[in-house]
Design a binder for these strands. Structure first.
Length: 728
DNA sequence: CGAAAGGCTCTTTTT
DNA sequence: GAGCCTTTCG
């Protein structure tokens, strides 16, 4: 059976799988079968070396990668390996802290704050510490705190490093921010890692427990780890020293999240006995794509040369295209997708459109929508970040842990119960004066109001009007009732009770896009179903943790036949037969913010490299001559990265085109006669039957507006794309 | 108190 | 262009 697990692996891959003892560094180029090697390695450990899955930890970059790894291992072993610890650093740390956090004063019910929660807490901290947001951007302070935490610097340590006035300000906000977090029984994203390190440093017994447990530790995407993660891995592996890290310095794209390339570059210094394995054979891309990528990345000065090669065929040249503006760029992409689907029988899931910034997705979406081509958008407005979803999650968090100030402030007036800005300021002020969480402040105030007539005491809260007092009390009693219910009802029932109690459905339906918002809530409810079988409190806790730690790629549905719209960052680790990179312009890719920093410029180049190397068969590099930024519309130069790809690798038919605007948009073309007229009955393959509202020539095409049966809104379709059939 | 309107700023990437 | 904040009015 050892033979089974090694079969089909090349010598380097084999070595990576078989090298079990001691530190191991796997330098894996794109498409070199890295995921496969990792899965085989784990399977090998279990099956051949007889290691208990319980003793293995594998850290992945996303939850999706974790799930895939489980699946692959299951496939290889033919048995489930539930026991194995697979997950992101954040998820694994959350689990450790749930169990052993009490050693460092963390209760079981701590909530996790995401970026948005962090920012609102930073704002509150600034307010209470007396820092004017006009002088210092909350975002900048937020990011400085994140930087500190990623480098293991608490407020005390940060104080020693402070140099500028800004640092001084950060230090003050940071210290109070930590107090507020503690008061709210909350940890932020960075804390999940930092607090785990603290736990290990302060409580050797806890560290020992995990050190003894994990005989084998594996960290994927090691080039994107930051100092905390590095220290964490080091601590955990200290006892058995069986640490295997996998990565590729050329694909390091998260320095802005304080990832430190030195972690991978200095691994051999830290572990002098480390074995190094190079995975250099690429199984993914054509020779042409690989060669283009190689030329691109070679322009970076700070890198280790690798000898990537492939046995794949030469393939076809990269297509470089200049469009007039972003709209035409999108049109070009969509028409190429359509052409390839028709001519080469590709499925829509074979295509990915990648871009530098989320904002770029909009122009693409509009056109995809118009042509009726299904797409899935990764990121941008994520499901869990929609307002209504966040509101309900905030309620659930509050039920789970009523001391969660950020959540309480967010929902105290949702739906409106007459508790406005002024009241909130007063409440917060009261809480601050007594150094208590908002929930406690609420209790004190409502208690105080009740006993007002009987006992005379100091009452800083008498300024509250009776009307508001009633509102506060009713909010508090709803909350308390729900907290009671959370002990007995499973998560789904609790959610229903909550929605009912606060009249959320009526509230949502009364606002624009109400139906869609309510549907989102129902989708959330469906997700909660996964935790329905758990005992009430556990279910709530598990659900919240799942919700907080998922990323958008995690939900990427592989089976759906749709084009993928995704940022270059999120595309890391994925592959597609056909890749379009749009916005190949100076200022966008490379991004303008990298212009004055050579190190950042190198990262932009790596980002482009990551994009190109996602492709198996075809790469399109598309740019727009003009692009509207924020209201302003300005011309952009072609990306410098285009010049780094030898022209012999680029399709000539696309190379010379200059300004296709003239050809595509002039109205001089004789419009074809409208095929449909208003009132015609039509049938669409996907949308069903409908009635034509209008049919207008558009370029050399026709735009048909149709009202489909059972749909409230009208759809605008382009005739040449939409499969419309006229009914008698 | 809350909705609406007007003015301001800042524009990257996300576990 | 949007998101955030402030102002204004009902």
């Amino acid at each position: 059976m050892a033979i089974d697990l090694l079969q089909g692996l090349n010598p380097a891959q084999r070595e990576a799988v078989e090298t079990i003892q001691g530190p191991l560094l796997i330098l894996a180029g794109p498409g070199s079968g890295k995921t496969r090697v990792i899965a085989h390695r784990v399977a090998y450990l279990v099956k051949v070396c007889g290691v208990r899955p319980h003793s293995i930890m594998a850290v992945t970059f996303t939850n999706k990668a974790a799930r895939e790894m489980r699946e692959r291992i299951f496939h290889l072993l033919g048995q489930t390996v539930e026991d194995i610890s697979v997950g992101t650093f954040h998820a694994l740390c959350a689990r450790i802290l749930r169990i052993d956090g009490e050693h460092i004063g963390l209760g079981k019910a701590f909530v996790i704050y995401d970026g948005e929660d962090q920012l609102s807490l930073v704002k509150r901290s600034m307010e209470e510490v007396g820092v004017d947001p006009k002088n210092f951007a909350p975002k900048a302070i937020h990011s400085a705190i994140g930087a500190a935490k990623s480098q293991l610097l608490g407020p005390q340590e940060h104080a020693h490093h402070r140099q500028t006035y800004f640092d001084e300000i950060v230090q003050r906000v940071y210290r109070h921010y930590e107090e507020l977090l503690a008061q709210s029984k909350a940890v932020d994203f960075d804390d999940l890692l930092l607090k785990t390190v603290r736990l290990f440093q302060l409580h050797p017994s806890a560290l020992q427990k995990y050190q003894s447990r994990y005989l084998y530790i594996l960290v994927d995407e090691f080039q994107d780890t930051n100092l905390v993660q590095y220290v964490l891995a080091k601590l955990l592996a200290q006892k058995h020293r069986n640490i295997c890290v996998v990565g590729d310095p050329d694909q390091s794209i998260y320095s802005w999240r304080y990832a430190d390339l030195r972690n991978i570059l200095n691994f051999e210094k830290d572990y002098p006995d480390a074995k190094v394995v190079y995975l250099e054979q690429n199984y993914r891309s054509t020779q042409t794509i690989l060669e283009a990528a190689h030329h691109l990345i070679s322009a970076n000065v700070h890198r280790k040369e690798k000898g990537l090669w492939t046995e794949n065929e030469v393939g076809i040249p990269l297509a470089v295209k200049e469009a007039y503006n972003e709209e035409e760029e999108a049109h070009f992409v969509v028409s190429e997708v359509d052409r390839l689907v028709k001519e080469e029988k590709h499925g829509l899931k074979d295509f990915a459109i990648m871009y530098r910034t989320n904002a770029q997705s909009r122009a693409l979406e509009e056109v995809f929508l118009r042509y009726g081509i299904p797409y899935r958008l990764v990121g941008a407005l994520r499901f869990y970040e929609r307002r209504e979803v966040k509101d309900i999650i905030a309620y659930l968090r509050l039920i789970h842990n009523p001391y969660d100030d950020v959540s309480l402030a967010k929902v105290i007036n949702v739906p409106s119960r007459g508790i406005g800005q002024k009241t909130l300021v007063e409440l917060t002020g009261f809480a601050k004066a007594h150094s208590v969480p908002l929930y406690t402040a609420l209790q004190m105030i409502t208690e105080g109001l009740k006993t007002k007539g009987t006992t005379e005491g100091e009452k800083p809260y008498t300024s509250l009007s009776p009307r508001i007092a009633v509102a506060l009390e009713s909010f508090l009693s709803i909350l308390n009732e729900l907290i009671g219910k959370s002990q007995e009802q499973n998560i789904v029932r609790l959610l229903d009770t909550l929605l009912e109690q606060i009249g959320f459905r009526t509230y949502l339906l009364g606002m624009p896009d109400g139906e869609e918002r309510w549907e989102n809530i129902m989708e959330l409810r469906a997700t909660a179903g996964e935790c329905e079988h758990l005992p009430p409190e556990e279910g709530l806790s598990a659900f919240l943790e799942g919700v907080m730690l998922v990323s958008d790629v995690d939900n990427l549905d592989e089976k759906a036949d749709a084009v993928t719209l995704i940022t270059l960052h999120q595309a890391k680790g994925l592959e597609f037969p056909i890749v379009f990179i749009v916005g190949m312009e100076e200022g966008l890719l490379p991004h303008i913010r990298s212009f004055d920093d050579p190190a950042q410029m190198e990262e932009e180049r790596r980002l482009c490299y990551v994009g190109i190397t996602r492709a198996k068969e075809r790469v399109y590099l598309v740019r727009a001559f003009r692009r509207s930024f924020t209201g302003t519309n300005r011309p952009n130069l072609p990306s410098r990265f285009l010049a780094d790809i030898p022209s012999r690798l680029i399709a000539s038919s696309f190379g010379g085109e200059q300004h296709p605007k003239v050809e595509a948009r002039t109205p001089s073309r004789v419009p074809a006669k409208p095929v449909f007229k208003a009132g015609d009955k039509v049938r669409h393959a996907k949308f069903g039957d409908g009635i034509v509202v209008s049919c207008i020539p558009s370029g050399d095409d026709q735009e048909v507006t149709v009202s489909f049966k059972g749909e409230a809104r009208l759809r605008r379709l382009l005739l040449s794309f939409a499969p419309l059939e006229k009914l008698a």
